[in-house]
Design a binder for these strands. Structure first.
Length: 113
DNA sequence: AGTTTGACAGCAC
DNA sequence: TGTGCTGCCAAAC
């Protein structure tokens, strides 16, 4: 179990990221209720002990892949396997694959995906 | 309880 | 494009 509510929220949001879609650390933090806590979110990803979560779907801002413990390349591979076009440390179709950060209840206007 | 540590973000060069 | 610096925050020391 997560130590704090923030951590729990972060993991909850993480768990609902659909395959093929990504979220930035900043988005994740914002959705978890701590805007600007992107760095802290990354720390949580790093120390999270909950298995089965799509940690690789959390990327850095600007379409950068970001880190992944000692295997950042694996992260890129996993993302590529889900349809993202990757070039080095960058996600080419980032804008298409980025999950819009809808906090809480969306107005239900456009069909997501 | 104070300090250090990053799987970050954004901007200046 | 890429590199470096500053600001931020929760966790680990």
């Amino acid at each position: 179990m997560p130590a704090t509510a923030f951590t729990r929220r972060v993991l909850a949001v993480l768990a609902r990221i659909p395959p093929g879609r990504v979220l930035t650390y900043g988005d994740l933090a914002r959705l978890a209720g701590r805007p600007g806590a992107a760095r802290a979110a990354g720390n949580i990803m790093r120390t999270a002990s909950v298995p089965g979560l799509p940690y690789h779907r959390v990327v850095a801002a600007g379409g950068r892949v970001g880190g992944y413990g000692s295997a950042p390349r694996l992260k890129a591979d996993l993302l590529a396997a889900e349809g993202l076009r990757i070039r080095g440390r960058r996600i080419l179709n980032f804008k298409e694959r980025r999950l819009k950060a809808t906090a809480g209840t969306p107005p239900a206007s456009k069909s997501l995906n």
